[in-house]
Amino acid sequence: MSMTQEAQPWQAPEHDKPVEQVEGYNFAYLDEQTKRMIRRAILKGVAIPGYQVPFGSREMPLPYGWGTGGMQVTAAVIGENDTLKVIDQGADDTTNAVNIRRFFAKTAGVATTEKTSDASLIQTRHRIPEKPLTDDQILIYQVPIPEPLRWVEPRETETRKMHALEEYGVMHVSLYESIARFGRITTAYNYPVQVNGRYIMAPSPIPKFDNPKMHQMAALQLFGAGREKRIYAVPPYTDVKSLDFEDHPFTIQSWEENCALCGADDSYLDEVITDDAGGKMYVCSDSDYCAERREAGHVGDQGEPQTPAQKGAAE
């Protein structure tokens, strides 16, 4: 099969049509033995929240950096009754997201969706959906660099020892450096967290805006790093605390603007350049969240009313 097909134009969120499973592949591409091996790593990860479990990462028909770790985790947990959503930078319509979704539609014959609430499995790169997840959902993160201590210690043997002995002073050293240089903690993505009061964990390059969503999340959170061959997990309803100082507490990004399309004041906004003259607007990065709000009748400064009632009111 080809992974280089063009992305389909984005449409209003609805269930993708189920695609017939392609013959000649094992269910969800990986062989059963590999899936069992990955499941064992996942179970160990769930048992030790935030602990990086090594696993025998397999080749996937995508280059590293395109989410092969997340795909292997998805392949290991997906069942034929699952409904899969794939997010890339908050959107469901990027080439990467479309390809991964189509890959599992073809190899596992599962239904896919762009709606957060309809998905049982969500594989993501760079975002957590705005809509709170539920305890019958699983969120699977694609992780490029799983080791939060790597910046200070290149040796794997030493970082493993630091985790084992809970020698985490250096994590605050990096935050200290940021405050000393810039007056505040400037880390905006992949902001380190402590899981269940024990392991320090890299949440993958999600914006720190999303960190609070990880705390006590109802859904199971799984993390897969393909190139680095690591899997880790946060079980449902687990404490996830962003590191900080008492006098420089953790804060999330905020915007003066609301979403220009749906008017949301509680979502992560992307800056979109609208013309050559430097015009710009801010819109929800979570495209499903934005669309759902607009369908429900919310309108931002530059949004078009979508329901007849709204239209009438605007005229």
């Binding site: 002073g169 250096v170 605050h172 050293v173 450096e177 405050i179 000393a180 100082f245 008492e246």
Partner: peptide, 27 residues
């Protein structure tokens, strides 16, 4: 020494390692 972090962070590291979490005090 940690050559890739500032002098102040080098001195403050042990404090942070034993749980000091107030930037101003560490400084």
């Amino acid at each position: 020494l940690r050559m890739n972090v500032s002098a102040g962070a080098n001195v403050g590291e042990r404090l942070m390692a034993v749980g000091e979490r107030h930037y101003g005090s560490i400084r």
